[in-house]
Design a protein around this nucleic acid. Structure first.
Length: 277
DNA sequence: AATTGTACCTGTCAGC
DNA sequence: TGCTGACAGGTACAAT
């Protein structure tokens, strides 16, 4: 479900409600979601540390607590973190229950059960699989055109696969990859290293920043069931130009948008506007 | 090194 | 109405 903008919106909606609070009880109903440590230790150790920050890295949510504990959550396709009242009726997809010291409840819900959670010490945070090989944060200052150019250099990967590969850049998924490539007028099947015109590279760089920022500003893309921690939908899906629009007409040239497979994922493309390098 | 297929799950939707 | 197959925002793994 969620890509960088959705995860960012979730963190922003979660942080003010969680800071200063303490998890006083935890019950895991679907044990396979907990990667490390084992479920008993997770349920015990996640308790009784005041929450100090909620941060995003790529598509990972990091809940920092006192005593150097960090809970890490990856929502994969259909995971949700939802703040609810203690008396609210549990969803059939509610798999983990966290009781806070103000009697509110944080639920981890997940229809497809692909999500993963970890509890770790701060010093070991970037030893976690996934987190340890993440590329730069595209909305931070560290991510410059030069950094992007360096990453693209010599890569024989298709550009769609390049954008989806979290080791290159952290946080881009299938929706934003399609929107970014359309905005930059680059065909998803382009070989990354063949995109060597500096103008086009800059266009790609700006498109990455712009589309991700817009996604956040619109509260994320609620294509199916994405909601933030208060259960609010985003509206960026109304701004999509290609994702989910196969068969419709290109907003630039009126050509019919085509659906294709690229790098193992479905992609929607305007074959006239988007140039193959 | 990169791509493809498969796996993990459940729900939805189109077509018959 | 009910069945079947394709497909879905992600990632890890094996085989090629």
């Amino acid at each position: 479900m969620p890509e960088l903008p959705e995860v960012e919106v979730i963190c922003r909606s979660l942080e003010p409600k969680l800071i200063g609070k303490t998890i006083v009880d935890c019950k895991v109903f679907l044990k396979k979601l907990i990667q490390t440590p084992n479920v008993k230790v997770f349920e015990k150790e996640v308790r009784n540390h005041k929450i100090t920050a909620v941060k995003r890295r790529g598509k990972y949510i990091q809940i920092f607590m006192e005593d150097d504990w960090v809970m890490v959550v990856h929502l994969r396709m259909t995971g949700k973190l939802l703040l609810k009242e203690i008396k609210s009726v549990p969803s059939k997809y509610g798999h983990i229950w966290f009781l806070l010291d103000d009697d509110s409840v944080l639920w981890y819900e997940d229809i497809r059960q692909f999500g993963v959670l970890y509890l770790t010490k701060r010093a070991d945070l970037y030893k976690l699989p996934g987190l340890k090989d993440l590329g730069p944060e595209p909305l931070e200052n560290e991510f410059t055109v030069e950094v992007l150019q360096k990453l693209m250099e010599g890569k024989t990967q298709k550009i769609k696969g390049f954008l989806l590969d979290q080791r290159n850049i952290a946080g881009i998924g299938n929706i934003y990859a399609d929107e970014i490539l359309f905005q930059a007028k680059i065909h998803p099947e382009s070989i990354t290293k063949m995109i060597c015109d500096a103008k086009v590279q800059e266009e790609l760089y700006e498109s990455i920043k712009e589309k991700l920022q817009q996604g956040i500003a619109y509260g994320g893309s609620s294509v199916k069931d994405y909601v933030d921690a208060q259960g609010k939908k985003g509206s960026f899906q109304e701004m999509h130009q290609v994702y989910g629009k196969a068969g419709q007409l290109c907003v630039c040239c009126g050509n019919k948008l085509k659906k294709m497979q690229s790098a193992g994922r479905s992609s929607v493309v305007c074959e006239r506007c988007q140039i193959k390098y």
